[in-house]
Amino acid sequence: MLGTDLDRIIAAFTAGDRRAASRLISVVENGGAEAEAVLEALYPALNGAPRLGVTGPPGVGKSTLVDALVRGERRAGRRVGVVAVDPTSPFTGGAVLGDRVRMGDLTLDSGVFIRSMATRGRLGGLARATKEVADVLEAFGHDVLVIETVGVGQTEMDIATAADTVVVVLSPESGDAIQAMKAGLMEVADILVVNKADRPGADQLVRTLEADLAMRPAAVWRPPVLATIASQGEGIADLAAAVGRHHQSLQRSGDLATRRLERARGEIMAILRDRLWQRARGQLAADVSAWSERVVAGRATPYAAARALLAAFLESVEDKA
């Protein structure tokens, strides 16, 4: 894409063109210099819209719940951007992104924009890419952002923590709670939802989760455990109210500002780490090979090698500065 092309798309985006918004999301998702240019152009339009993360094991009803929550936001007149992240197959690099199936009726609502995203084996970069896609949707004039991710491991949790309020969804189906506790999902939850409350075992799961939470030290915010039947819209109003209360609590305690500062800090650090590493790796590759031979021959330890390489790298940086 040429610079002028990008400028034209940004202008269309500013005028409210949905196709342009979609193109800019792709640019940002694909990263690189163009993504940076887009974010620079859009940052002034960011206004701190609340961000809701919805995470949990596959099939518990997250998308169904998001659909119900978004309808509620729409009734209140708020425009909503949704980012739905599903895993990329590690074997083929492809993905089937199926979250829209549960949100079909929102497609033709001009106050809603849904974007599906694959994890693309981005490791640490996924949280950033997801956040930046949400940035584009926020700059496009959405009042609330919802990020749905499959919460089964560390990277997914990172994405969830990019939200102001994290809802962890479980269902009575066997193993969910144990899996969630093992994966550390409970620790990131601001609100716990037991969905599929129409299924046997829901009450038991609510009690188990409440017992677990009761053992936590007292805090400003105590995560509530709510039961929902997303497919029937039951319990959604209570959930929306809890999200609202959490946001108010964040604002009152000053935690919202703290969380956002931490998030910005994390972002800058991650970018710095990437840039430094890329530069160092490119520059030092040949020397690392030479040192490896010395290490294998028993003439240096890996630590001594790293020390020498780092010193050489820092010196070269200083020379250029």
Binding site: T92, G94, V96, G98, R100, V101, G104, T107
Partner: peptide
């Protein structure tokens, strides 16, 4: 959808009707 995924594509599946 699955064949396209297995070929390395990202498939957005929207369902029926």
């Amino acid at each position: 959808a699955r064949a396209l995924r297995d070929a390395g594509m990202e498939v957005i599946y929207t369902g029926i009707r």
